[in-house]
């Protein structure tokens, strides 16, 4: 049994230490916002936050998140209380098919948490692991830069 925190709530899974986080999220836990794209850490569609870092859930065994904070797109925000990146994606109409957006938001949120004022190049660099086939890249970058202006102030102390 692996215990961790999922979107702020205690969570445990008996899927086995080596089960992949993506399978557990989409399967037993029923959180389908995190998407399967390649299963090989090459497209970014399945990224989630693990203790604030953006990681591919398809390449993360369950044991690696034991005791950690896991945040999926469903936990990042909601229509009632969107994360600044989510609000900006909608304002900028930054998306077409949307398949890649879950993973991209996760990396964008991780970036803004550690760098509240990124440059255009820094945003692109942070999102370079994420493939988008519809060509929404520039709108997404603009949205992330705009979201940076609306991030809540950083906590004064770092670490957990």
């Amino acid at each position: 049994m692996v215990q961790f925190t999922l979107n702020g709530n205690p969570c445990h899974s008996g899927a086995g230490d080596n089960a992949l986080l993506l399978d557990v999220l989409r399967g037993d836990l029923g959180l389908t916002g995190t998407r399967f794209g390649c299963g090989a850490n090459q497209c970014g569609a399945c990224h989630v936050l693990v203790d604030g870092a953006s990681v591919p859930a398809c390449d993360t065994p369950l044991w690696a998140v034991a005791g950690k904070q896991v945040v999926t797109v469903e936990g990042l925000g909601s229509a009632a209380a969107p994360h600044p990146v989510q609000a900006a994606l909608i304002v900028y109409q930054a998306g077409q098919c949307g398949y890649c957006l879950s993973g991209i938001q996760i990396s964008a949120a991780a970036l803004l948490a550690r760098n509240p004022n990124p440059t255009d190049a820094e945003v692109r660099s942070a999102l370079d692991r994420h493939l988008c086939r519809c060509g929404s890249h520039n709108r997404i970058v603009k949205a992330v830069l705009a979201a940076a202006q609306h991030m809540p102030p950083k906590p004064t102390e770092s670490g957990a």
């Binding site: 959180l31 389908t32 916002g33 995190t34 999926t72 797109v73 469903e74 990042l76 925000g77 909601s78 229509a79 969107p82 989510q86 994606l89 909608i90 109409q93 998306g95 098919c97 949307g98 957006l101 879950s102 938001q105």
Partner: peptide, 10 residues
């Protein structure tokens, strides 16, 4: 369609 796609709604 965009809000649901952004929030990861099925």
């Amino acid at each position: 369609d965009l809000p649901e796609k952004v929030f990861g709604t099925p």
